[in-house]
Design a protein around this nucleic acid. Sequence first.
DNA 1: CCAGCCCTTTGACCCAGGTCATGGCCCGCA
DNA 2: TGCGGGCCATGACCTGGGTCAAAGGGCTGG
Lengths: 226, 226
Amino acid sequence: MTPSPQVQEILAQSPLFRDLGGPELEALAAVATLRPLRKGEVLFLEGDPAHTLFIVAEGLIKVYKMDPQGRRQMVLHLDGPHQAVAAVAIFLEKPRYPASAEALEDSLLLALPSGDFHRLLETHPALARALIRFLARRQRQLVHLLDRLVFHEVSARLAEYLLGRLETEGQGFRLPTNPELAALLGTVPEAVSRKLGELFRQGLIRLANRRVWIDDPAALRALAEA
Amino acid sequence: MTPSPQVQEILAQSPLFRDLGGPELEALAAVATLRPLRKGEVLFLEGDPAHTLFIVAEGLIKVYKMDPQGRRQMVLHLDGPHQAVAAVAIFLEKPRYPASAEALEDSLLLALPSGDFHRLLETHPALARALIRFLARRQRQLVHLLDRLVFHEVSARLAEYLLGRLETEGQGFRLPTNPELAALLGTVPEAVSRKLGELFRQGLIRLANRRVWIDDPAALRALAEA
DNA sequence: CCAGCCCTTTGACCCAGGTCATGGCCCGCA
DNA sequence: TGCGGGCCATGACCTGGGTCAAAGGGCTGG
């Protein structure tokens, strides 16, 4: 965590606000507040009234639904630097967060009062356009997630996850804990453990500590599609 | 299907466009085309390039994902009169429909070229605002669907469905076919048949033809939460 | 008015994966 | 240095619900 980040700088790097002019950014920066969050801290809970939009400056935020008994959770998306969190909630008639959010790492967020954001939206078509694009992209991603959950089994979802990490980070990336991974895949830690073991036994991947090397991407791809 | 519906009239009734001024509506109406669709006809398929936004004038449109083998399908939402279809797709970088759509009844749609829509958006904040609200609401609904699918079993989803119909239509509403209902609930026709049978045997509902009377809404509610 | 097609119901079967319990390990903290 | 809590792996078990097959039933279009 860097000592004193430039609020305007953060705003200017976010896809949502990057098209705004200098004066607008300054005005926004004036009403924004910084919100540090320690690993594991909760940002908001499903059902909380939503007055605030967040921009991630540093760290990683997990947005998730919790099951009724409060034991399992299902991750909807992870948001890193420059990403907006809770952009949806503040536009509902009764603004309440439809999911919960917590920090996966020590993080720093920019909090923007929803009133100010709404006001800015009125007068800045570029902001509206960026927001619309953002919402459309996120919705596409949610539909994809739904598709995977309904039509594909755990091993296929795991395979897709591994290939995704491989693509963005290359060989040897570090896995999250099994409970975290299970929440990402919509299953339970035991299942993750077993499926990883299978992949290893079949020679598709190698594991050391929590690092992964993928030996047979083609086979993994086939698994992911199945 | 009424003989010759007023295009402007249809636009003016849609939540998306109702806040536009007369001249804008007229301009939009000039570029809109009417698209009749017979029951069962496909409007677009997942993956098709998306140049067009639709507004339902009459009828009912089903938007759904198909499973890889093309046997089961999962309904994402149903859209009746005044609703927009495919509002998301045209805002993606590579505009392709993320799901398929077909008519559940004989329908009439208004087709708006996405270019015109984009242009209108630039200059009309009210339209942007309405669209943002629309996208936010739909996203909330998708998250709810996902939650139900991941955390609740078929009988709970069926119970919720029945209560929803009861609320909006009262006793004695008509069920869709089992395959349709299965697609709505994310399961297979056989499971729907069995679960309906169970509810009947437990005395929670009565069935005649395909009409439903709900005798014990409280018990059904309990089931839905479980 | 008939033939065919799809829907419905039901039974038998099966399997992915969720649950529970055990034992070992690692790591942070006192 | 010892303790405790969470993580990990694995086995045993169980069940929701998906698959397949068979036997009516009813709507529809020719």
